[in-house]
Every structure is written in C-alpha cells, then in structure tokens.
C-alpha cells in the first residue's frame, strides 16, 4: 500500500487468457471481510483456478508453477471485467504484484488498481503477444517499467512502448499520495459548488 513508484525491473507471471473477470481474481465468497487485510485477499487470488475444492494446488496453474514469479502480472485482453469489487485489486496487491500489463483493462478495475498502488500498464496487442512469447521462451526474462518516463520495456527483445498515465495520477503514484488526501484539501470549492447548484428536489 502507498509505496512510491519509480522504476521497477522484474520477472513476470504470465496469464495469457482474455476476459479474466474479477469473480475469477477473487470469488464472491471471499468478499465477506470487513477489514482491508491484503494478505488474506492475496492468499485467495485466483482461488478457484489455483486450488481444487479440497485445497490442494492445481499444479499447472501459473501461480503454482515455480518457474514463474515476480512483481509483474501479464494478462490477456480485457483484464478485470465484471464486478466492481476492489477486493480484486487488494488480492493482486496482497499477492505482491505492483504492475499488471495487459492490452486492455476494464474501467472500474483499472481505477481500483490505481487507487491501491498497483500500476495498470496498457500495451499494444503485438507488444503483449511478443511479451508472452518472451516469457514462454525464458521465464527468467525481465520487464522494466519506468514510471517517470512512462515506458515499458521487454528486456529480452528490447522492444519498448510508452504507456498512458495522466500527470495527476503519476504524481500521486510517485509521491505515494491518494485521491482522498487531495479531495480533503478542496472543501472550499465543494461548498461553493453546492451553493451554486441548490435545487428543490435533491
């Protein structure tokens, strides 16, 4: 939580599936917590893909494959669709990922990641395909995510891309500040807005 971003160089965990929804990231039965205990959510990340109903690990699921590890999750197109549950972002953060790379993120989940200091990096489809191929060829290959310069580099091939991140969010990530800190400083403007927009029916 709230760890400032700069440059991250890490091996990757590949999940080359499209449309991974938040019900898969963290099934609903794990949403009953009333606290934000990230380690609990992290332990149950991708629970039903990772473990059988009796709790034994599913050997060929990537999180159980000792060849793969690191701070970067690489996922197929349309990652995080479905339910708005922020628990999905907590699970990803709790497991230890700081970056998720995909060619496309669902809106709400993308915001949830950003609000939990997990950086969603959107790359082109060819970049993603090449990255999956690089990881398959050598699981120890690394990716460099340079937040100040907004670049992501496949260090196996040297291919690099610029990713989108608005300068406000970038500032927040690099200084470990959240939106609420900002909003609490804007009380005057909120009250001024309310005065200018009074209506009888709200």
């Amino acid at each position: 939580m709230k760890k400032a971003f700069d440059i991250i160089e890490s091996t990757c965990v590949p999940l080359p599936l499209a449309n991974v929804d938040t019900d898969q990231i963290i099934p609903a039965r794990f949403l009953k917590a009333t606290t934000r205990d990230e380690s609990f959510f992290g332990e149950n990340l991708f629970r039903d893909w990772r473990f059988r109903p009796d709790g034994t690990p599913v050997k060929d699921f990537v999180l159980n494959d000792p060849r793969y590890g690191g701070e970067i999750l690489v996922a197929g197109r349309n990652f995080g669709s479905g339910s708005s549950r922020e628990h999905a972002a907590w699970a990803i953060a709790g497991y230890g990922f700081r970056v998720v790379i995909s060619s496309f993120f669902a809106d709400i989940h993308r915001n949830n990641e950003l609000n939990n200091f997990v950086l969603p990096v959107t790359v082109s489809e060819p970049f993603l395909e090449e990255l999956f191929a690089s990881i398959a060829a050598d699981p120890s290959m690394k990716v460099r995510v340079d937040v100040p310069n907004q670049t992501v580099t496949n260090l196996a091939t040297g291919r690099s891309e610029v990713f989108e991140l608005n300068s406000y969010k970038k500032y927040c990530l690099m200084h470990a500040l959240d939106d609420i800190d900002y909003l609490l400083s804007r009380k005057g403007s909120i009250e001024a807005y309310e005065k200018g927009h009074e209506v009888c029916w709200k």
Partner: peptide, 19 residues
Amino acid sequence: GIGTSEVEMVLASQCILQQ
C-alpha cells in the same frame, strides 16, 4: 459503479475524481 476507495472518497467529500 465504483470501487471501495472511491466510496471512501465520496463519503469524505461528496465528490469523486474521474476521467
């Protein structure tokens, strides 16, 4: 729909930051 951090934002300020 919004995430829980955003719920906290609205509770705190009746506002939300959105693109």
